[in-house]
Design a protein around this nucleic acid. Structure first.
Lengths: 254, 254
DNA sequence: ACGGCTGAATGGTCTAACCATTACAATTGA
DNA sequence: TCAATTGTAATGGTTAGACCATTCAGCCGT
């Protein structure tokens, strides 16, 4: 018998299986969904049935379903006629991933602002090229709504961000849409943490020049107006957040 | 007794608890990590210990850990001195989220290319402003490596993308880094699916003008060179992928 | 016809046991 | 003495079976 490779693990047999059962289940279910065997709205078989089909325990099935749920592929509802329902994969999960990175301090507010300053003007430019009567109306309404009296910070934020969401929907690039939604989500989070005087950080009507340029169908003007706005607001956000951070955590003590 | 709002659920008492046990566990563990009670590399208590501490079953603990693992907060290892280890939150999870969206056809190759064409020039511009000897050396080496003989498609892709990764690291914005990493991941996926003639889609040395501009410390020239490259390659990628899709799936039959 | 009750289906949780993997200590043998 | 082997304990992975909680449809009595 050859005495070679003692500690080096000379494998004469293939390793059986390393991955977890639940991961294989996850993969199969995911592929099944992606290949269209289950469409949005469809209900997956009950956990007990899946356990039977896959010949594994219900726990393994549940771990797989939990993974799919976390990835945004399904949602589960309890009760009769409940179960795991395939959802239309949204951008929310992506936004959450960005949020986690932000909370873990892997992304800072200045970095966030820098990205917005690059992307938003391009979005405005594209939006101006894709103007339709429907979107025109939506933009006008969103702009008017900005002047409504401020009742809560959250409501105010949502009204002031409405224009951005409409524009990114208009731009016709869902990657930009995913990106902007994530960026706006982060921005909202920061603003809520900082709790500024609402009128001070973002007065009403700030979006008017942008909207007007878009309504006029002038891409370059829209981009320029948005560039101005993004720069202004980005600067304000960075300043406010810096001040906030310094007052809240004057020392890095635990 | 007032008979109002029977089916409408008139709540006089707060609902006790809607969320799942495992979600509360997840939340507490996540907060604990984010607040720094556990740092990267630390080991969380054993599952059985956590179950004891939280006063819930091990199943609930395991679902929580699985969620944290899926979010990229921890990794688990089996065996003695194994357990759940806190990881340094990376951009991988984000890239996976983008990949899922792509696989679910929520993002198309043209959209992907459009984003790259916007972001990459800016990254090159910023990189040119942050040149250091260390990065200069890395760029030169990466550029040379592009001429190495092609052994496998994967290796070729990795060598041709190296310059992009160095540039985005140079640019000093981790949000851009996360974004580019995701974009490159998607691009790699598409190229691997299309299986083009390596030299045809992306000849070697295509990055030379970009690298030269960056090494010269000329932001605008770098941005312009990258804009040219991104437009060219983006166009090629879209064309190849379109052709590929048409040959592979001539009919939308299931 | 209406309202309440009941049963069945489903996900959520728990317990207790056992399997699989790994590190390390103890033992063995040259 | 030292290397290899073996045992042991700690850990995550998996299973089975039971029970709880929620929801809905249908039955039943008024």
């Amino acid at each position: 018998m050859p005495n070679i490779a003692k500690g080096v693990q000379m494998r004469r047999f293939k390793p059986i299986r390393q991955s977890r059962v639940s991961e294989e289940v996850t993969e199969q279910l995911k592929q099944s969904i992606l290949q269209g065997h289950f469409k949005a709205g469809d209900r997956l078989p009950a956990e007990r049935v899946l356990a039977e089909d896959f010949q594994v325990s219900r726990v393994a099935i549940r771990e797989a379903l939990r993974t799919l749920e976390n990835s945004g592929f399904i949602m589960t509802r309890q009760g009769a006629s409940g179960g795991a329902f395939v959802t239309d994969l949204s951008f929310d999960h992506l936004a959450n991933a960005f949020l986690d990175l932000f909370l873990a301090e892997k992304i800072s507010v200045p970095e966030l602002s820098q990205v917005r300053m690059l992307v938003e003007p391009e979005v405005a430019r594209l939006a101006a090229m894709n103007l339709t009567p429907h979107y025109a109306e939506a933009l006008k309404q969103a702009l008017e709504a900005e002047d409504f009296p401020v009742r809560s910070l959250e409501e105010d934020i949502d009204r002031k961000t409405a224009v951005h969401f409409i524009l990114v929907e208009m731009c016709g690039n869902r990657f930009f849409e995913a990106l902007i939604r994530s960026l706006m989500g982060l921005t909202k989070r920061v603003v809520q943490a900082v709790q500024p005087d609402p009128g001070k950080m973002h007065p009403a009507g700030l979006h008017r020049p942008i909207v007007e340029a878009v309504l006029a169908g002038e891409p370059e003007a829209a981009a320029a107006a948005m560039r101005r706005h993004a720069a202004e607001f980005g600067q304000a956000l960075v300043t406010f957040e810096k001040a906030f951070r310094e007052t809240q955590a004057p020392s890095p003590l635990e």
